[in-house]
């Protein structure tokens, strides 16, 4: 019964947020739309990361590799004359296809090895984008002219769509057998295998899905900023942001990444103009507090209350 209630609150909150997001362009100026667009992007990326790392425990330090691939694919296809939505679609597709071989290769690795391998892959992506000058124009970057670009509204709703679908995907998987199996891998991969979970297929599937979203987000991002260069899209700092947001909110949960992205983005927005360097140091302090005192993320504050009401509830958040 309580579970039912919680679900209703979730749904209600979700609808409320969606309503605000859908109608925002009616009463918000372009800057706040830009801000929300970036927030949606971070939600989408955080959810994508959550899908592979939050659920299976395979910590990826290089999901920006897919973001970068999507951004370059999207920008180049747009220049080649494709309509923007098709360019986004194909950008996502390319990231997805790339994830198949990469997934099979890297997911054999465990723990820190996987994390560092992904970091290395992201760097390899950046290097390819820098050195393959004929295709990517190298360090000059790619500049997209305004007449090619979709309107801010299109970009806004594209990102909103991505954030929403990423969230729904996580929510959907969370409740299915697939999600259960992924979490089983996180708890104990050998045991999961023993009871008949095909861990390789599961992991690679999750990896592909979690590559699809950054691929699409990268393509939309390229159309939104109008200028990309290798280091601005294959950016390890962006990857760290995704991780921080997920951890902040609560790993392996549906609402955690949304909460985390929202809080971090709003804090940054309020602080950066006044304290350019200090606000990042403050973020570091906040991060330490969360890691040390709130390992389940902010969402565990809400969960804890519910657990008092429901002593039999399983721990919602990740270790």
């Amino acid at each position: 019964m309580l579970n039912n209630n919680r679900r209703r609150v979730s749904l209600g909150l979700g609808f409320g947020l969606m309503l605000i997001a859908m109608t925002a362009p009616l009463y918000m100026n372009a800057y706040y739309q830009s801000f929300l667009l970036q927030l949606f992007m971070m939600v989408a990326l955080a959810q994508a990361w959550n899908l592979i790392s939050g659920m299976t425990g395979y910590v990826s330090f290089g999901h920006t590799a897919f973001f970068g691939v999507g951004a370059y694919a999207g920008a180049l296809l747009l220049l080649a004359g494709f309509p923007w939505w098709l360019a986004v679609f194909k950008g996502a597709g390319i990231a997805l296809l790339l994830a198949v071989p990469l997934g099979f290769l890297t997911l054999r690795l465990r723990g820190p090895y996987f994390a560092i391998a992904m970091l290395g892959l992201n760097e390899v992506g950046r290097i390819i984008a820098t050195l393959w000058v004929d295709l990517t124009r190298g360090g000059d970057g790619i500049s997209l002219a305004p007449k090619l670009l979709p309107s801010l509204h299109s970009n806004y709703f594209s990102m909103l769509f991505l954030a929403l679908s990423a969230t729904l995907l996580v929510a959907f998987i969370h409740r299915r057998r697939f999600g259960l199996e992924l979490r089983a891998i996180r708890e104990d991969e050998e045991a999961a295998e023993m009871v008949g979970v095909n861990t390789t297929v599961n992991k690679v599937m999750a990896f592909m899905l979690s590559a699809l979203i950054p691929g699409a987000a990268g393509a939309v991002y390229a159309m939104y900023t109008s200028y990309i260069d290798p280091s601005s899209v294959f950016a390890p700092a962006l990857n760290i942001q995704m991780i921080v947001m997920v951890l902040f909110g609560g790993t392996g949960t549906v609402w955690g990444p949304i909460l985390g992205a929202g809080i971090v983005m709003f804090l940054r927005e309020m602080l950066w103009a006044q304290f350019p360097a200090a606000h990042l140091a403050a973020l570091g302090v906040l991060l330490l507090i969360v890691v040390l005192y709130l390992p389940g993320g902010i969402i565990s504050l809400f969960r804890a209350r519910q657990q008092r009401a429901r002593p039999d509830a399983r721990t919602g958040a990740a270790p």
Partner: peptide, 8 residues
Amino acid sequence: PLLSSLLA
């Protein structure tokens, strides 16, 4: 877990 030490 790995993530805690990474983030700290």
